[in-house]
Amino acid sequence: MENVRLIEVKEDILSDNIKLAGEVRERLRGTQTMLLNLMSSPGSGKTSLILQTVEGLAGKVRFGVIEADIDSTVDAEKVTARGIPAIQLRTGGFCHLDATMVTQGIDAMDVSELDLVIIENVGNLVCPAEFDTGAHKNIMILSVPEGDDKPLKYPLMFSICDLLLINKIDYLSLSDFDMSALRERALALNPRLTILEVSCKTGAGIEGWIDWLNGEVETFKNMEE
């Protein structure tokens, strides 16, 4: 029998993706296109939020959408029906988007004509938090029916985001969701987190979201000068 020997590896598995994500970020800086990564559990309201965004940005910010779905094109169809360019990436069995897939998405779009690209990531709070997509800003949606304990269960997701949108606040009166406990838990994980409350159904709070988004796109553009 051969002798066992030891080989040093010393590699972090996420390093390839981190490198590629950096390239995506730089490339989109060049075209002055802000990339925004939208994450949540399935059904929290990612597509609804994108649809609510169309009107608010009309005439001000030109945007496109990269849709990730395990194996369907329904979300992309809803978005294109509103006149917004959308690319559908079928992720197959993958439960998240990585920088390689995002590169395919932006290759298929005319990003030089866009101020903003929104990625609708795969619905799940685990893997999308691990994989840098190359986005300039990370956003998550938590909807009221999911409960106020989610920061305790998915700390990584809350700690990497710039903005947390609490959606479906029209359900608040029907549930025991504790908004101040949620805020406290989320901010303990991530003190620089901005938290906004919205309902994509009633339109409550959507103005605040549009203001935030307009502000971020503007800051991004000015950074370039």
Partner: peptide, 20 residues
């Protein structure tokens, strides 16, 4: 203090391997 920044705890690092 109550506010902090994450330094490590989310890595997937392959140290080494025993081979023949």
């Amino acid at each position: 203090g109550k506010e902090y920044t994450l330094i490590s705890g989310r890595e997937y690092y392959i140290k080494n391997m025993e081979v023949q």
